[in-house]
Amino acid sequence: MPFQEIINIVLPLMIVASAVIVVALKDLLAAAIALAVMSLLLSLEFYMLHAPDVAIAEAGVGACLTTAILIFAIKATRRMEDGR
């Protein structure tokens, strides 16, 4: 099997797995970093689908700016998600 087909199968599975991790984590800072990982894998998937413009925009906005905004929001509120 060629390398590109393996990437095309493995990458969406990794994206779904990191999205599930975001929902499952109780520590909100770790969840924000897992969301950044999901955005980075999504930009790699855009690059594999021959859309480099969208990949650059996704890596800049999704993986960096959104994570920074979430980190500032966590800084102003609580870090752990309560059971309630």
């Binding site: 413009d53 650059i56 925009a57 800049g60 906005v61 960096c64 700016l65 920074a68 980190i71």
Partner: peptide, 29 residues
């Protein structure tokens, strides 16, 4: 580089601006 070479290579104003803004945000964090 991404902004200035927007008419030659992939990227453009929005993408390069997002990269520069992410550098500034790195300093902020």
């Amino acid at each position: 580089y991404v902004i200035l070479h927007g008419h030659l290579t992939p990227g453009g104003g929005f993408q390069g601006g997002a990269i520069v803004a992410s550098g500034i945000v790195l300093l902020l964090v």
